[in-house]
Nucleic acid binder design. Structure first.
Lengths: 229, 229
DNA sequence: CCAAAAGTGTTGACCGTACACCCATGA
DNA sequence: TCATGGGTGTACGGTCAACACTTTTGG
């Protein structure tokens, strides 16, 4: 619309999403079989081109919703990939986002409607372009983020038990944790609300459910609060 | 060149650089008076449009070199800004980079040739578009990075004294540090090489010069080494 | 000889880690 | 009653922060 910049080249901009999920056992990534050329039928991250009427963040949300049907999801910009030949068909700049979703909700709504599939991190197939690089970076970011921001909760159902939470962190960090120390640490952050309800089915005794108390966390934040797991 | 993507819109892509420097006292940012319309004459980060024959990283280097004449500079991609109206003239997606330079070298080579100026962080003027947001984010990133990557050295001359290094970290973190504890910590990381030479002029006694031993650091890295200041 | 900055060790508090047993309940 | 996972407390060692005096040398 403006005359000022018109001597400069323009580029396609894609938004690609690395979508993490947790199935109570393992950390997983959601991949799709690409449904358009080039590389149609190959495994790929979910992505789309930036449109004129949306910001990058909005494009990320749109791409995510179109695949999962979910809104209000944790979504964070990761990195922008701009190598000249990263896409062998044409030059495309890709802004990668990473998302955390609660697989319980997802499975209910979308189960098999899409040609998407969850992959364990060790079993990721060959992907197009630089998508494997993106996943590597996303995983590192997730590991770091999870140590001082309460994003683990994004991967769990609304109500969760402390043993579940521990399993999640063990999966993210790829280590085993001592349950007494873990419980102490996580409770000392003081953002969990204990419910008067127990999980049934998993153990005979039953573990108490907790929820993440976002209000409390936000109040902490405004007080310059910082935690480290 | 490809037929596959041609129904999608394309965009201008800019690369903007947040350039930090340290003058032995304060942390500073290098800004320029914009020399083209729109907003010609206003203060701005140094930037440029992405060209067809370069990757994003290369564009960052080019922009940086065109302003400072320096190559081989610490340069890290920061974040990509894609709000629809961030530039009021036309839609531009901006990939921000942050750079660390050694002001001694810079001052020698370019002093006043360019219409660039160093600003203390507290005295940054009104900038165009979202450039102030970018600086805020860059500063946060620098603070975090400096705690577990040896990037402080990028802001100092080849040879530096421990008191100089301490002043630098005090500027970045905006705190005072105990010199005994600082010296112990920084030396325990084991990447400084003591030289047989003392600084003259600053104190009567004179402080020993050190250099950053990159080889040693790289060897540590491959051993899965990690430090925290 | 004095001013100014460089350089050096020790102690106490706190935090992270390791570790083992009892509890509740469904089958 | 027994098998399964849930829940709890303590003690030790290491790390971090606080702290004050001596050294060197130019003026």
């Amino acid at each position: 619309v403006s005359k000022y910049y018109k001597n400069n080249p323009t580029y396609y901009i894609a938004v690609d999403c690395i979508i993490f999920g947790f199935d109570q056992e393992k950390l997983k990534v959601l991949l799709i079989k690409r449904d358009f050329e080039p590389h149609k039928g190959e495994w790929s991250l979910m992505g789309g081109f930036l449109k004129n009427n949306e910001s990058l963040d909005e494009a990320g949300k749109r791409v995510l919703e179109s695949l999962t049907g979910l809104t209000d999801i944790y979504l964070e910009q990761l990195y922008t990939y701009g190598e000249i030949n990263r896409d062998d068909a044409d030059r495309v700049i890709s802004v990668a986002y990473f998302a955390l979703i609660n697989t319980t909700v997802f499975n209910e709504k979308y189960s098999n409607k899409q040609k998407a599939k969850w992959f364990e991190l060790e079993k990721i197939p060959k992907l197009i372009f630089d998508h494997e690089t993106m996943i590597d970076k996303a995983l590192k970011r997730l590991t770091r983020r999870s140590k001082n921001q309460p994003i683990g909760f994004e991967l769990l159902p609304e109500k969760f038990t402390i043993p579940q939470l521990q399993k999640l962190y063990e999966a993210i960090w790829n280590t085993m944790l001592d349950k007494r120390n873990f419980r102490r640490k996580i409770l000392s952050i003081n953002v969990l609300k204990k419910l008067d309800e127990k999980e049934i089915g998993v153990s005979k005794k039953g573990a108490y459910f907790y929820t993440f108390d976002k209000d409390k966390y936000d109040r902490h934040l405004t007080n310059g609060y910082y935690f480290e797991l």
